[in-house]
Design a protein around this nucleic acid. Structure first.
Length: 118
RNA sequence: UGAGUUGACGAGACAAUCGCUGCUUUAUCGUUGUACCGCUUAUUUUUAAUAAGCGGUAAACAGAUAGAGGGGAGGAAAGUCCGGGCUCCAAUGAACAGGGUGCCAGGUAACGCCUGGGGGGCGCGAGCCCACGACAAGUGCAGCAGAGAGAAGACCGCCGAUGGUUACUUUUUCGAAAGUUUCACAGGUAAGGCUGAAAGGGUGCGGUAAGAGCGCACCGGAUUGCUGGUAACAGUAAUUGCAGGGUAAACUCCACCCGGAGCAAGACCAAAUAGGGUUUCAUGACUAUGUUAACGCAAGUUUUCAUAGUAUAAGCGUGGUUCGCGUGGAAACCGGGUAGGUUGCUUGAGCUAUAGAGCGAUUUAUAGCCUAGACGAAUGAUUGUCACUCUUCCUUGGAAGAGAUACAAAACCCGGCUUAUGCGUCAUCUCACCAA
């Protein structure tokens, strides 16, 4: 079933959730983005964002990046296996265009899907 | 038309698709408690009451799903620099300490803000800028330069009583005398030079050996009075030779103001685990005394029963005090409280319009309106069309191409200040040029 919804059930909400992902992650990355992945027990995939103030200084840029990531996750989530995901960002990302962020993310989604098919 | 000045407003628009988050409403679903009705069981106070369970109906509250409607970042949301509301803590008031403000008047919930006025500075002007009380209460500070930096100072210069000397001039009774020049020097001087950011009022005339408020006139200052003004202050008259510079974002003095911490404030619900208190229960344990039985030569060990004691234990360590060690189980209830959740949370010193008061900040009255409430943190993404600027072409409003789209995102709420900001629109006044 294809869904484009994105509500509270598809987010990591508490520090506990985040710790679980940081504990033993699979790492995927591109030039500006790092993604940590852990399989979860729910029949759902969940997204958490870790955009450090150190990496992206302006609140406006942080918001923009978060929205782009959420949008990309929302549109691709039906292809992903059931996993918990934490997206981290390297410095310099605030200078990327929306399109570039999207391209990088889609590459990573493909990698994750391939890895989990095996 | 150009160059400026001040003020106000806007912060790309529309459509489609896919999403996020509150609100309103409709439908469905299940859950919880409430009321009523019926049935069953139990107890007793037995034509009934109470409790528990099941079923039905009603309305309410919250939840989930689906549909519809409607709302969803800013002028600075920023910096967190002031002020206030609100919350908790503290509190009789006052003083001290500490901090802040600082021309006058008004506005305000309050302010370090705003308005009007005064003074000073800048600009041809419209206008803009200024922490703008007191250094004659006291203390302190000032590199270098310079003679001297505070009731100053004699380096150069100017003058010069007196004494000497050289030369010259004049007079001459030929002894000399006077003058000029020059040297030494008691001293005078604050005009000039020099230094400096600053040198103890300024200009002119008189005066003097040379000078000097030494005297005078004008300007400036101080004091006292008068006039105008609520006041800051301004004007004016008389008196006073002038009275000791700067610095108070130096200590300080004067006047006025200020309790502390903050929505991670505060309030409510409250899992698991651990721990606290109260009550009850059951039996067991321990101790003391007596006692039964068994074993044993005995000391004693094990054991039965009874009585008494046990939470500030008994007991042990050490004879006493102190101190330390030790102080079992189950159930119910109570209270604190972590994770988490709910609330505080958006109706407010609110916005808009009209009218009145006021030069204005502002304020009064009436009417209308409700305009974000997220919490690992929503307010978005993609595409298309049109707008904006520039260039080119035809030509005077079309086409093509290119470019730009800033600064920056609520986090309890308001009033300010400061800083960032591509640009567009409107109004205001000033200056310059041209035309009339």
């Amino acid at each position: 079933m294809v869904t484009y919804e994105f509500n509270r059930e598809s987010r990591l909400l508490t520090p506990g959730h985040f710790q679980a992902v940081f504990a033993k992650p699979l790492r995927f990355g591109s030039s500006h983005i790092t993604i940590l992945v852990t399989p979860n027990s729910d029949n759902n995939n969940r997204l958490g964002l870790a955009i450090a103030k150190k990496r992206v200084k302006l609140a406006v840029q942080r918001n923009r990046i978060k929205r782009q990531i959420r949008e990309s996750f929302r549109l691709n989530q039906h292809n992903l296996p059931f996993v918990d995901i934490v997206v981290m960002v390297k410095s310099g990302t605030d200078k990327l265009e929306n399109k570039e962020i999207n391209q990088q993310l889609e590459k990573i989604w493909r990698k994750i899907i391939q890895r989990h098919k095996k």
